[in-house]
C-alpha cells in the first residue's frame, strides 16, 4: 500500500490553538477532511512533518447561520461544514441552491462526508502531471509545482498552471462570497474574488500560518437566480473537467440587473468572466445565454492539465454556459 511519510499530528481544540500551532511548527499543514491532503502526502507532494488536525474545532467551525449585517442579510458557512452537510442543509438548499447542487456532485458519498467547505475552498490545484506518485513524477522528470523546473502543460511555461478544481469556488464566486481568515496577526475578511491567485503552486492569498474559518454569502433582498454545472467523465468520484456557475438578478420586467459567471477547472484561478456590464439591462433570455456562452469561450482557454481534451472542452463551453444560464433563469 502507498504509505504516508513520517510526520507528527497535532490536535488543537480551538481556532486559537490551531493558529498558534500553524505559526510555531515549520511547514505545518492543516488536516481537515483529509480527502485532498492525505493523497497528496502519500504522493510526496508536500514537505511537511506537522499536520494540524482540525477535528477538535468542529463545534466551533461547523455551522450554517443566517444573520443580518450592515450590508443586509448574509448566510455564514463555517469552514468545517462537511460537503455532505451543505448539500442537504435546508438554509443552503433554500438560499444557495447552486452551492447545494455543486456539493452533491463532489466526489462520492464517503468523500462528501469527510470533505469540508474550508478544505474544498483551499483545495490544492490539480494537474495530470502533479497528482501522481513520487516514482511517476521522477520518471516524468518532475515539474514546476514540485521538485522540478519544467512545465509539461505549457512549453517553457514559468508559472504553474495546475487547475483550480474545487466545485464550491465557482458558485461562491458567482454569488459574491467572502472568506474570513484567522492568523497570528489577527483576522481578515477577503472577498473570494481576491482570494485566488494565478499561481498553481500556491493559488490563494492564504498565508501558511493562516486558517480559513468561514465563508459568507450576501443575501440580497431579491434572491439571485443561480445554477451550477459540472462536466466530468464519470458521474461520481471525479473532479471537474469544466465547472461553471452563474448567478443573476432579474427585475420583475425580466431584465438582468446583476450578473456573474464563473468558469473553473481551467488554470490556477477560477475565472470570473469579465466585461459583462453591458449585459445588465438586457432581457434574461436565450439571447443572453448564448452571448454569455460566446464570451466565456473567448475568455477561457482549457489546458492539458486535465485529462479531457482541451479543444473539446473549449468547443462545448458555449453550450454548457447557455444551458446553465437558461437553467438559472428558469429557477
Amino acid at each position: 500500500m502507498l504509505t504516508l511519510p513520517r510526520l507528527q499530528l497535532h490536535r488543537p481544540g480551538s481556532v486559537r490553538e490551531a493558529v498558534e500551532l500553524l505559526a510555531s511548527k515549520p511547514n505545518a499543514r492543516v488536516l481537515a477532511g483529509g480527502t485532498d491532503i492525505v493523497p497528496n502526502l502519500k504522493h510526496g507532494i508536500y514537505e511537511t512533518e506537522h499536520l494540524i488536525a482540525l477535528r477538535g474545532l468542529s463545534s466551533e467551525l461547523r455551522y450554517v447561520r443566517r444573520d443580518g449585517g450592515r450590508d443586509g442579510d448574509s448566510i455564514r458557512l463555517g469552514a468545517l461544514c462537511t460537503i455532505d452537510q451543505l448539500s442537504k442543509d435546508p438554509d443552503v438548499l433554500q438560499s444557495l441552491p447552486a452551492l447545494a447542487d455543486a456539493c452533491r456532485q463532489i466526489a462520492g458519498p464517503q468523500l462528501r462526508k469527510m470533505g469540508t467547505l474550508g478544505g474544498n475552498l483551499c483545495l490544492d490545484t490539480r494537474c495530470v502531471y502533479i497528482n501522481q506518485s513520487y516514482f511517476w513524477r521522477s520518471a516524468l522528470g518532475f515539474c514546476l509545482k514540485k521538485d522540478g523546473t519544467a512545465c509539461h502543460v505549457v512549453a517553457q511555461g514559468l508559472r504553474c498552471v495546475a487547475a483550480a478544481s474545487n466545485d464550491t469556488a465557482p458558485v461562491l464566486l458567482a454569488l459574491g462570497a467572502s472568506v474570513r481568515i484567522v492568523g497570528p496577526r489577527g483576522e481578515r475578511v477577503v472577498p473570494l474574488a481576491d482570494f485566488y491567485l494565478h499561481d498553481g503552486i500556491h493559488n490563494t492569498v492564504l498565508e501558511p500560518d493562516e486558517l480559513l474559518v468561514e465563508a459568507a454569502v450576501p443575501l440580497p433582498a431579491a434572491r439571485l437566480k443561480q445554477a451550477f454545472f459540472k462536466l466530468r467523465t464519470r458521474a461520481a468520484i471525479d473532479y471537474s473537467a469544466i465547472n461553471l456557475a452563474v448567478a443573476l438578478a432579474v427585475s420583475p420586467a425580466g431584465l438582468v440587473t446583476a450578473l456573474r459567471l464563473c468558469v473553473s477547472a481551467l488554470a490556477a484561478r477560477p475565472a470570473l468572466i469579465n466585461r459583462l456590464q453591458d449585459l445588465v439591462g438586457q432581457p434574461a433570455d436565450l439571447h443572453l445565454a448564448e452571448e454569455l456562452g460566446r464570451r466565456a469561450q473567448k475568455q477561457c482557454k482549457p489546458l492539458t492539465n486535465i485529462g479531457v481534451d482541451p479543444a473539446y472542452r473549449r468547443e462545448i463551453l458555449p453550450v454548457l454556459v447557455r444551458r446553465t444560464v437558461l437553467r438559472a433563469i428558469a429557477s
Binding site: L4, R11, G34, L51, K113
Partner: peptide, 16 residues
C-alpha cells in the same frame, strides 16, 4: 454512523 474512507483517515485523528 456515516461511511468514510479509512485509507485516507489518520488513525490518530479517529480517536474521538
Amino acid at each position: 454512523g456515516e461511511p468514510i474512507l479509512a485509507c485516507i483517515t489518520l488513525a490518530q485523528d479517529a480517536q474521538d
